[in-house]
Design a protein around this nucleic acid. Structure first.
Lengths: 116, 116
DNA sequence: TTAAATATATTGGATAACCAATACTCTGAA
DNA sequence: TTCAGAGTATTGGTTATCCAATATATTTAA
């Protein structure tokens, strides 16, 4: 999530690695692709200073691996990463399901995407 | 959200003030009540060192007011707080709606509460 | 009366997500 | 050949969320 202090009444930071893991459960990606996907989700692109250290840490924890493909580096979630993600995915959704349904009631149409 | 490092594969911290504002949109509460509600949502109680400075900051930003009621202090969301919450509520849900629907598909029953 | 429980509040430290800036490598265009 | 753009990577600083510890005030129980 993103702060954008001038836009939001409270801090909306956090859950960065969680979102990265989520994206990687869908498909392996280059760093730049992850950045693009996060831009689509959050409305703006994460800084390299945020993304690459986070990816490095996820690798260190063996939740993600990476390998060079030509000039680019592809990141893949590990089985350990998948298993770990299931747990936190469940936790997250249980924390926020009520909040989410409230939002749905206020928005009668169901969007299949995120903000653009 | 909460880290519980020993339990989760990635950091699940963040969005604390967001959650507090959400709870206060439902009803005014004492600090201890907010702590109880967060315990219900997240599975554990926030520390006073987390809760009270956050409430103090929300007051400073005029998103929340508080007043003494006997020995207890009741916190109320302001109109500014409500308006601000609408914006971030929308942002949050747009960021995570896909992730949430994925969870729903994996959990065929719809729970009306949160983890206990 | 004293101790325990509850509520509120503060302080200091750790950490991840953020930022901006900088650096390196490679490719493609001028 | 040089420069610009894209991708990857690092560094240093800020800040909110966490933690644990401590403190104060009030009520209740022993």
């Amino acid at each position: 999530m993103r702060t954008r202090k001038s836009d939001y009444c409270c801090d909306m930071r956090g859950l960065f690695s969680f979102m990265v893991l989520w994206l990687l459960t869908k498909k392996s990606m280059y760093g730049s692709e992850i950045a693009e996907e996060l831009k689509a989700l959050r409305g703006d692109r994460p800084n390299p200073g945020t993304l690459y250290p986070a990816l490095k840490e996820l690798e260190k924890k063996k939740l993600v691996t990476s390998e060079r493909e030509g000039n680019l580096r592809v990141y893949r979630i590990t089985e350990k990463g998948r298993a770990g993600f299931e747990v936190v995915h469940d936790y997250f959704c249980r924390c926020f399901d009520d909040l989410f349904y409230e939002w749905e009631k206020k928005h009668t149409h169901k969007t299949t995407g995120s903000i653009r």
